[in-house]
Design a protein around this nucleic acid. Structure first.
Lengths: 344, 344
DNA sequence: ATGAAAGCGCTAACAT
DNA sequence: ATGTTAGCGCTTTCAT
């Protein structure tokens, strides 16, 4: 059936649209009978207000755009889930896009989002992105932008990130506290700030315990994959004085390393303790269960949304935008893979 | 800076909004000079058309709503990814909501989506949902709805699902073809059609190979968790004539079972072959790697979107809506856990 | 080549 | 208690 409008109801009742509009919205100055008839016909005609007309009139769209590099990733699913939780509670909706880690596509989807009329944008930059002119352009259109996880200081915007440094520091400290002294690290590539921070946390923890930094105990990934974990673990086992423990930049690398260790006849954690980063669901299912550093994805989504909604409100009130920079703690999850067996 | 409108440009140039509108859209009957100046001022004023005004005028919103029970789930991430791929290529956007497997919330979010003015809806029903009156109501508002994965025959709508029966049948056949004859099954609860189909596929495969159905080889989960896998595997091991292989309704159950088997001193696949369902990423990472049945999530997202967009178009053309019912094949991924060792 | 005017569907200030 | 009117920002037909 064709969608009914206020006018349809008004005409069929011989009143004006204004009356109908008021009747439907419980305005005080409306006769009980009129209200009744209007409500009844509206019901009968399956009337529903045209959302676009309402929004145009009220200048509020109530939609925020979200751009992540890759939806099919547990961390981003968590973030998105947190975002939806917060914004829906305030009657907002979420339009979701992905950049597929492509700078080109990121520009394209942010443009599309602007053209769709979102009230604000939550963005996790792609790994390729170094220039943020496209986001600055959005801000020029009075569109608030909040960055999370992968951020860029070139943009004057609120940011919400995990404390990768602290997470890494805690992970390594957990190893050192148990008496391990030769802690290896498989680090990520130099570009994303996140993995660089993890490396920094690793070095800082060693330094805090007065241990030397040994370059031969560090491997640098390019793609951050399972197979790189395999490669570096083999390398470590072949050293004249091999490490006794390993902090890997991600869980997939940690799992790759464990695979290689096992093939080489090394037991985990007896011959080498291992701790990863990200706390994927697999960590709990593997044997041994894998220790890892959990990122507060859901919380990042919530906090970033709160900041964005605040800025949207400030914009509406014609107040200056206040930016914030949140750094949320990561939590180490200690499981079997990193627990030193009792000393006999 | 305040957002510029057509009128702003028109006034600053001493022309009408109509002229500006035409100049910006490359209409033929517009002087080159006017076009130049308009374009220049538009640029200077950072003009961008107001999306809501355009959409209201053109009666096209170009947004589809998506409702899934839980975003943080690899299968749904895949589906969403497929949806976004297809609809963005046609200039549409995706508004995402989750029902958290709650019937109440499903009603709430579908209503919100209607109120937001989406052009159509892609829905995976919550496990709680038995009545689909809320979706029928949407259809009454001329809102096309396509169901995927968890569907309900009570609604006259297009559907896209995995062929759970065939996937299960193939999984069990794969075991039987290798000479296993005592195939156990840990099934899901009776309600969601999907897991019932898997059970049906299991029985059909046994029947096709002339094997008896043995109730003692079947366990029924309530929550479909890792720990239920543990419980049933222990039960199977304790049987006087234990099964030689197992088809589990999901990967988490399969992994639970493997854990229990290992604890009980049983080797996988030597003492019991195991195959799961869903093909989570973990399956490749575990040792032994776990065989599983892959659901075509991405493809489901694509196909469901295509059906929905077709219906949206048909509605616009005032043609009758054509419904389709697609059943996409699942693919068995054979890995170590289900491969019978060579017979010596 | 450009302007004037109507209208998408709704709201709200101002009448009566 | 209800009607009138003006607009939200844009597109498009019909004039000129």
């Amino acid at each position: 059936m064709k969608r009914a409008t206020l006018r349809d109801i008004a005409q069929s009742l011989g009143v004006t649209v204004a009356t109908v509009s008021r009747a439907l919205k419980n305005y005080p100055d409306i006769s009980a009978t009129t209200k009744q008839t209007v409500l009844a016909t509206a019901e009968r005609m399956h009337y529903a207000p045209h959302p676009l007309a309402v929004k145009l009139r009220q200048k509020s769209y109530r939609v925020v755009g979200v751009v992540v590099p890759d939806i099919v990733h547990p961390f981003f699913s968590d973030v998105i889930s947190g975002i939806i939780e917060v914004v829906e509670a305030l009657g907002y909706h979420v339009i979701l896009s992905q950049s597929n880690e492509s700078y080109e596509k990121e520009i394209r989807v942010t443009q599309m989002l602007l053209a769709t009329g979102v009230d604000g944008l939550l963005v996790c930059l792609s790994n390729e992105t170094v220039d943020v002119g496209h986001l600055r352009a959005l801000q020029d259109y009075d569109l608030p932008v909040v960055l999370f996880d992968k951020i860029n200081s070139g943009l004057d915007a609120s940011t919400v990130v995990t404390n990768d440094f602290q997470g890494a520091y805690d992970a390594v400290t957990h190893l050192l506290d148990q008496g391990y002294t030769r802690v290896a690290h498989i680090k990520g590539p130099p570009h994303p700030e996140n993995t660089r921070q993890r490396f920094a946390g690793y070095r800082a923890a060693l330094a805090a315990y007065g241990l030397p930094f040994r370059p031969e105990y560090v491997g640098e990934c390019h793609a951050v994959t399972h197979s790189e974990g395999v490669t570096f673990a083999r390398q470590f086992m072949a050293l004249p004085e091999p490490p006794d423990s390993l902090f890997a930049v991600t869980d997939s690398v940690a799992i790759g390393a464990i695979t290689a260790l096992r093939e080489g006849g090394w037991r985990v954690p007896q011959d080498m303790a291992v701790i990863g980063f990200s706390d994927w669901a697999v960590c709990q299912l593997m044997e041994p269960s894998i220790s890892s550093v959990a990122q507060p994805g859901y919380e990042i989504g919530r906090r970033a949304s709160e900041l964005l909604l605040r800025e949207i409100q400030q914009l509406r009130d014609e107040q200056p935008l206040e930016h914030d920079h949140l750094v949320l703690d990561a939590t180490i999850k200690i499981r079997q893979s990193s627990q030193r067996p009792a000393i006999r």
